[in-house]
Amino acid sequence: MRPQTLADVAFPKTIKSFVRRAGRVTTGQTKAFDELGPKFLLPYQPETLDFVAAYADASSSRGLNDAQAQPLVLEIGFGMGEATAHIAALLPDTHFLCCEVHEPGVGALLKRIGEQDLHNIRICAHDAVEVIDHMLPERSLDGVHIFFPDPWHKKKHNKRRLIQAPLVAKLAARLKVGGYIHCATDWQPYAEQILEVLSAEPLLKNTALDQHPELLGYAPKPHYRPLTKFENRGIKLGHGVWDVVFVRHA
């Protein structure tokens, strides 16, 4: 579950949400692309997304009248889609817009959508920053999920990390008041950076400071986020996992 894309240059001048990786698309994933892609893949477009049209089937399948009235959560970098499918099944009345450029990951999530009969996911296989800039208007999101982004362990590579002030400002502007950003990482230095960057954004507030002061700004794992196989392995090895949840307050 590491959002990846664009490592063509050492330090890109513009924000990017990924580093492109190679990977083999399986037969099952290819079949999912062919059968489910036309319905669940949203093409990138340099104009505001028509939310009603994009999620019309998700709403009608549950007897809902207004797709635009349903909560909308953006996920950046869903990896192979395990957690995404779990959360979408747990929250069937929430719409999820999921950005990932790793083709096997996109195929894997499409396959899970078919296997679990999910209707509330749409996938945009494009750089999330351009999706945010051009397809998502301000105050259009109820939440943002960024789970286990690439930590770029070496200090000289820290500038490649996804969670930086310019991106957080873009995300905060697109949250409705009361909307949230939820990040999770298993790399403590990155957790500290995420906490610092989100704390510096004036539109956001760390509600965990009041509700769970003993966690020093970090949040308890929200009920909807599952423990992944990767995370379980880390916990068994004594590795920590840090959840950071901030809410737009104004």
Rank of each mutant, 00 (worst) to 15 (best):
A169V: 14
C124K: 01
G28E: 04
K159G: 14
W187L: 12
D150T: 13
A200G: 12
R139Y: 07
Y190T: 01
V19S: 10
P166D: 05
G240C: 10
V177R: 14
P12R: 08
L6T: 15
N206R: 01
I181M: 05
A7G: 15
L237M: 14
L109M: 04
H239W: 05
Q211A: 12
L64P: 02
H119K: 14
D186A: 13
P166W: 10
P226R: 06
D34N: 14
G240A: 13
L64M: 11
V168L: 09
K39V: 11
K16Y: 10
E138D: 15
P202F: 02
H86P: 01
A56Q: 13
G63T: 07
P222D: 05
D8H: 13
L42V: 14
L97P: 00
P149W: 02
V9D: 01
L6N: 14
D186Q: 10
A200D: 11
L49Q: 10
L167W: 11
V52L: 06
I235P: 07
R139H: 14
S140T: 13
E47W: 12
P149F: 03
A88C: 06
Y180M: 10
E75R: 03
I163W: 01
D93A: 13
H223G: 14
P43D: 13
L42Y: 04
S60P: 06
G143I: 10
S199C: 07
Q164Y: 08
V245C: 04
E138A: 15
K31I: 12
G79I: 08
R174Y: 04
H95Q: 12
D133W: 05
G37C: 07
P43F: 05
E192N: 12
L198F: 12
P137T: 11
V144E: 01
A10Y: 15
V247W: 01
F147K: 10
V73H: 00
A85M: 09
A32Y: 09
S61I: 09
L90Y: 08
I146V: 13
I121W: 03
I15T: 11
G143L: 08
F148E: 03
L6Q: 13
A69D: 12
D50T: 11
A54S: 09
Q4D: 11
D243F: 07
G81C: 12
G143D: 04
D93M: 06
F147C: 09
L74W: 00
V25W: 03
N232Y: 00
P189G: 05
A53I: 05
F230T: 04
Q211V: 07
C183R: 12
T27A: 05
